[in-house]
Design a binder for these strands. Structure first.
Length: 208
DNA sequence: CCAGACGTTGTT
DNA sequence: GTCTGG
DNA sequence: CCAGACGTTGTT
DNA sequence: GTCTGG
C-alpha cells in the first residue's frame, strides 16, 4: 500500500477527500477491480489512530497451514462470525473497515445475468464491516488479509440477491474499530442491513 | 486419540 | 489454535 | 465465479 | 461439455 493516512475519529467518508487525490480510487470498490486475492486498502486502528494498510481479500487465519483457504473466506456471515474458528478471533480483536463507493450484485433475468450497482444515494464513500488477520508466509513475512461480512439484504438489495455486505454508518464505524468494545451482542447489532432509503441502485451496463 | 477441518458464493 | 468426527 | 482437469489401481 | 478445486 502506498500512502499512510491516519486521523483519529475520521470517518471513511471524510478520508475520501484524501483518497480522491490517489489514482487508484476505483480500486476501493470491491467490483471488477478487486477480487478475492487482490490487494486493497483497508482501515485499521494502530496506536489509537486510523491507518490504511494494503491487504489481500480473503482472510487467511494466522493458524492456516495453507493460504488457499483465503479463496473461501472472502465473506463471513454475520450470523455466525462470532463462532466460526476462522473468524472468531478476528471478530474480537481484528476488526477493520473496507472503504468502497459501491458494490455489485448479479440478477438472473430471462436466462441472462446482469450486474446491478449499489451505492449510497449521495455516492459518498462508505465502509464495509471487515475482519483481518495476519498470516506468516514460509519466508517469515507477515501477510495481511481481510474478509467482508455479509448479512440479510434490505428491501432494495433483496430484489437482486439474498445477501448483502454489511455497510457501516459513520457513527458505527468508530464502534466497530474500537478495541474497547468487546460485547459480542453490541458488535453483532452493527451487522444489520443498511438503511435502504439511503441507497441507490442502477443497472450497470459498463464493462466489468 | 488422531486426522482433518476451519468457508461463502453462485460474478465479489 | 481449536473443535469435530471417526 | 473461473481455471483446469478430463484416469486407474493400489490391500477391490 | 461438465465437474472440481481454488
Amino acid at each position: 500500500m502506498c500512502g499512510r493516512y491516519s486521523d483519529e475519529g475520521t470517518t471513511v467518508a471524510e478520508l475520501a477527500e484524501r483518497f480522491d487525490a490517489q489514482p487508484k480510487l476505483e480500486s476501493f470498490a470491491p467490483s471488477a477491480n478487486i477480487k478475492p486475492t487482490h490487494t486493497a486498502p483497508v482501515v485499521v486502528m494502530e496506536s489509537g489512530r486510523r491507518e490504511l494498510r494494503g491487504m489481500q481479500w480473503g482472510l487467511i487465519p494466522a493458524w492456516a497451514k495453507d493460504p488457499k483457504i483465503g479463496y473461501k473466506t472472502f465473506n463471513a456471515r454475520a450470523e455466525t462470525v462470532a463462532e466460526k474458528p476462522a473468524f472468531r478471533q478476528a471478530f474480537k480483536q481484528q476488526r477493520c473497515l473496507v472503504p468502497a463507493r459501491a458494490f455489485y450484485e448479479w440478477l438472473s433475468e430471462n436466462g441472462r445475468k446482469g450486474p446491478y450497482l449499489f451505492s449510497l444515494e449521495d455516492n459518498e464513500l462508505f465502509a464495509f464491516a471487515g475482519l483481518y488477520d495476519v498470516w506468516t508466509t514460509p519466508g517469515g513475512d507477515p501477510l495481511y488479509s481481510y474478509t467482508i461480512i455479509t448479512t440479510t439484504p434490505n428491501d432494495l438489495v433483496e430484489r437482486v440477491h439474498n445477501r448483502m455486505p454489511v455497510m457501516l454508518a459513520p457513527q458505527a464505524e468508530a464502534v466497530w474499530l474500537d478495541a474497547k468494545v468487546t460485547d459480542p451482542l453490541a458488535l453483532r447489532s452493527l451487522l444489520a442491513p443498511y438503511d435502504a432509503s439511503l441507497m441507490a441502485v442502477q443497472r450497470y451496463d459498463g464493462k466489468l
